[in-house]
């Protein structure tokens, strides 16, 4: 199957195909609105000063109790109303959704995938029918990650050479792959289709080619594909091919 993600329209955020991406988008839109208001207010006062006060005697003042109060008040308002709001929302979102690996792993039908990043492609490993990683029926793909729609996906990420970063623009998530450690990322797609996987961290001359495709399938289609691929994998398994045995025992999330 050739993968063909479609180009985006316009200059805005790429279209969101994830269950939780709207949480990011809402914060982005809130921040955009807030900074626009701040910018317009400050810019208007400056322009007023330029036009209105460009000549004529200047006021002799090092600041009055009132004008200093204005500064402190404005800063406090922004700190509580904008920064505070961002902080509270983000705490909730991280704990409940984006970094909540515990409940994602425990969810009914959750899909677990191991991804090994290296210059310059993404190898993915599925546990196959036995549900365990590092066994002969593991399904291994390159630059081609398939997931079912509507269930949480948890990926454990490793790298064998330099730091890479798994980035799914249409799902609003990314996570670095760091040599020597295993990192995690979780997401859930809500619209079937083909989307791009990008590397976000500079990883050498061909960093720009480290592209892969995420295919979001209907649950049945995903099950059929995985079963077929598992059969193929078992037949093609070569115990001598050490290079292909990079998988690891799944590490349950313990905070």
């Amino acid at each position: 199957m050739t993968a063909a993600p479609l180009p985006e329209h316009g200059y805005g955020l790429p279209h969101d195909v994830s269950v939780d991406g709207f949480r990011v988008d809402e914060l982005i839109h809130f921040t955009l609105a807030a900074i626009t208001v701040i910018f317009v207010v400050v810019a208007a006062s400056l322009i007023w000063s330029f036009v209105k006060h460009r000549s004529g005697p200047a006021l002799y003042s090092h600041g009055t109790r009132g004008s200093i109060g204005l500064v402190v008040g404005a800063v406090a308002l922004v700190l509580v109303g904008v920064d505070g709001n961002l902080f509270i929302h983000t705490l909730g979102d991280m704990h409940q959704y984006f970094w909540n690996f515990k409940s994602a792993e425990a969810a009914q039908g959750a899909v677990l995938i191991e991804v090994n990043a290296h210059q310059w492609s993404w190898d993915a490993r599925y546990p196959g029918a036995d549900g365990r990683f590092g066994t002969p029926d593991d399904v291994i793909t390159t630059d081609d990650i398939r997931i079912p729609v509507g269930v949480p996906v948890v990926v454990q990420l490793a790298s064998t050479d330099v730091i890479h970063s798994l980035y799914l623009p249409n799902l609003r998530v990314k996570q670095d792959a760091v040599p020597g450690t295993i990192t995690r990322i979780t997401f859930q797609a809500k619209i079937p289709g083909e989307y791009e996987i990008a590397c976000a961290q500079h990883c050498g001359p061909n960093h720009y080619k480290m592209r892969a495709v995420l295919t979001v399938l209907a649950p049945d289609a995903f099950r059929n594909w995985l079963a077929d691929a598992g059969e193929d994998a078992r037949r093609a398994y070569d115990p001598e091919d050490k290079e292909a045995h990079w998988g690891w025992e799944w590490r349950r999330f313990e905070p």
Binding site: V42, S49, H53, A58, L70, V71, V78, D83
Partner: peptide, 24 residues
């Protein structure tokens, strides 16, 4: 990181108020 925006805002607002009723 969110907190460090407060002193930065003080600096910028002080510039804006310096320009208020000035003779530029």
């Amino acid at each position: 990181t969110l907190l460090i925006s407060a002193p930065s805002m003080v600096v910028v607002l002080n510039w804006a108020l310096t320009l208020w009723r000035a003779s530029i």
